[in-house]
Amino acid sequence: MSEYKGVMVYGEVTNGKLSAITTELLGCGRKLSDDLGQELCAVLVGSGISGLAQEAIAFGADKVYVIDDPLLKDYQTDSNVLVIEKLVKQVMPQILILGQTSIGRDLAPRLAFRLETAASMDCVELAIDPDSKLLLQTRPVYGGNARAIFTCESYPQIATVRAKTMAPLARDASRKGEVITIEAGLDPSVIRTKVVEKVSEEVAGIKLEEAGVVVTGGRGIGGAEGFKQLEELAKLLKGAIGATRPPCDNGWVPDGAQVGLTGKIVAPDLYIAVALSGSSQHMSGCSGSKNIIAINKDPEANIMKVARFGIVGDWKKVLPAFTEKVKELLGG
């Protein structure tokens, strides 16, 4: 296995920029490759993305492979598996890391099976074992109730990384690196899927993942009406609205508002959790928040154990008074 060397990051592009997760992966990958004393490379796949190679270097990559082809405009499983399989066989990295995103979730397992190796999904910590030099892959399991550390002895060791768990490096435009263009060489007939359309359900206002304040409601809010009150507070604090799974499944809020293991991962400065119990699945999506405030009528609820401040009481009485006072304090 000694012919395998280096760390590879699968980069993602959103709205013509490197995604936040990609800069986080580069930060994490830099550390892993330095620990191994090896190179860090990134791969960018898409259409019209070659201009971003320099950006990946500024965030820590030594080399950037660019696979730019109109056929790669939309993410599709078949085309991405093929081009990355080819690149991995050529570059032979010891480690390949991707984001735990709708792309990484789809691509990593399929790629791992194709390359006859294994992937660990949704890792929150990655480190090099000082003795074996294997990648120690720590990931939450059992809905966040436990964590497990995995190793894999076949190369490349593949892991996806949860958003907001790794720190990006400061952007340094003076960093030098090499950009290598790779031909996709795709035969369109091997792509067995077709993206017919993309439907955006983005809620107006601040993006949930980027908000500094998130006001989240749970099952106890009871309906869409209740969420209007949460919205008022969120607006006041220039924040976004979040929800646990039941309000989304019941249609009180759009699915995109779901925070948790299978929803969005947020890490705001202030997370106000209203009428939610704090299940492990939900906490998976918000445990990185700097300050969690809980409003819940059950003093034994799990959220009370993880919050910094809490009020035990009926949210219908607490929230309007809280919103009113916050308005006054911010105004004054």
Binding site: T117, A118, S120, L136, P140, V141, N145, A146, R147, A148, I149, F150, T151, C152, E153, S154, A294, P299, M304, K305, V306, A307, R308, F309, G310, I311, V312, G313, D314, K317, V318, P320, A321
Partner: peptide, 26 residues
């Protein structure tokens, strides 16, 4: 193909300060 080295429960740190009042509003 993967080996589980360890399975453990993460330690939950921090202590919640409960804010009191004569009424929920307070």
């Amino acid at each position: 193909r993967t080996k589980m080295v360890k399975l453990f429960q993460p330690v939950r740190e921090g202590k919640c300060e409960i804010i009191e009042g004569e009424s929920p509003e307070e």
